Amino acid sequence: MKPAEGSTVIGKSVIIRGDISGSEDLFMDGEIEGTITLTESRLTIGPNARVRADVNVQDVIVFGRVEGNVKASGRLELRQSASVVGDIQAGRLSIEESASLRGRVELTEPVQRPATLNIR
């Protein structure tokens, strides 16, 4: 799997203990223990990733394993190889066949982005 163009990439051999925050899209394929906060960005948790963290993002796509609570103001996608142990709060949720989820799910109203007005 290839990360989206323009994403920051954390490779599968990287181990992080601490907090990650930012305003760029992130492709995480390593291991993290702590928190991930990307409230205006997309997080992709790759197939090799092992995340033991609370996650607060705009959108998230999970291919790997997550242990912790996940809050997505937009869309959360659990792909076939995904495994999530923790509570989920999201505007929209998509779960593919064979994905694993153990926890509570709360679907909220998606955050509406302000429309761009072109006034002439």
Score class of each variant (00 low, 15 high):
residue 103 G to L: 08
residue 46 G to I: 03
residue 37 T to G: 08
residue 4 A to G: 14
residue 10 I to E: 02
residue 9 V to C: 05
residue 68 G to C: 05
residue 13 S to D: 15
residue 27 F to L: 05
residue 23 S to H: 12
residue 102 R to H: 13
residue 50 R to C: 01
residue 46 G to N: 04
residue 28 M to K: 03
residue 47 P to F: 01
residue 85 V to D: 08
residue 5 E to C: 03
residue 94 S to V: 12
residue 13 S to L: 13
residue 13 S to A: 14
residue 1 M to T: 11
residue 54 D to S: 08
residue 2 K to G: 11
residue 53 A to W: 06
residue 6 G to V: 09
residue 119 I to E: 15
residue 101 L to C: 05
residue 63 F to Y: 15
residue 85 V to W: 01
residue 85 V to H: 10
residue 90 A to N: 04
residue 44 T to Q: 11
residue 88 I to G: 03
residue 38 L to R: 06
residue 119 I to A: 12
residue 93 L to G: 05
residue 106 E to F: 09
residue 43 L to Q: 07
residue 97 E to L: 10
residue 9 V to H: 09
residue 17 R to C: 00
residue 68 G to N: 02
residue 5 E to H: 11
residue 5 E to P: 10
residue 84 V to Q: 02
residue 14 V to A: 09
residue 83 S to Q: 11
residue 19 D to H: 08
residue 70 V to L: 10
residue 6 G to K: 08
residue 2 K to R: 13
residue 31 E to G: 02
residue 61 I to S: 13
residue 102 R to T: 14
residue 79 R to E: 11
residue 72 A to I: 00
residue 89 Q to D: 06
residue 80 Q to N: 13
residue 44 T to W: 02
residue 58 Q to P: 00
residue 30 G to F: 03
residue 57 V to N: 01
residue 59 D to C: 03
residue 10 I to D: 04
residue 73 S to I: 05
residue 29 D to Q: 06
residue 15 I to E: 14
residue 114 P to V: 10
residue 85 V to M: 10
residue 38 L to S: 06
residue 61 I to N: 08
residue 67 E to G: 00
residue 2 K to T: 12
residue 99 A to R: 06
residue 65 R to I: 04
residue 31 E to F: 01
residue 112 Q to L: 12
residue 6 G to E: 11
residue 72 A to P: 03
residue 31 E to R: 06
residue 68 G to H: 04
residue 115 A to Y: 05
residue 47 P to A: 14
residue 15 I to D: 09
residue 51 V to T: 06
residue 30 G to W: 04
residue 34 G to T: 01
residue 111 V to F: 07
residue 4 A to Y: 10
residue 85 V to Q: 12
residue 108 T to L: 12
residue 23 S to W: 02
residue 92 R to G: 08
residue 98 S to C: 03
residue 3 P to C: 07
residue 77 E to G: 00
residue 57 V to F: 01
residue 116 T to G: 10
residue 3 P to F: 11
residue 60 V to Y: 00
residue 25 D to Y: 05
residue 33 E to R: 11
residue 83 S to K: 09
residue 42 R to N: 08
residue 57 V to M: 03
residue 15 I to M: 08
residue 37 T to A: 14
residue 108 T to R: 14
residue 75 R to M: 10
residue 3 P to K: 10
residue 29 D to L: 06
residue 15 I to T: 13
residue 73 S to V: 05
residue 46 G to V: 06
residue 105 V to E: 05
residue 100 S to L: 10
residue 16 I to K: 02
residue 109 E to Y: 04
residue 37 T to D: 09
residue 67 E to A: 07
residue 28 M to S: 05
residue 7 S to L: 07
residue 22 G to Y: 08
residue 112 Q to M: 12
residue 1 M to C: 09
residue 101 L to Y: 05
residue 10 I to M: 04
residue 41 S to G: 09
residue 7 S to D: 13
residue 50 R to H: 10
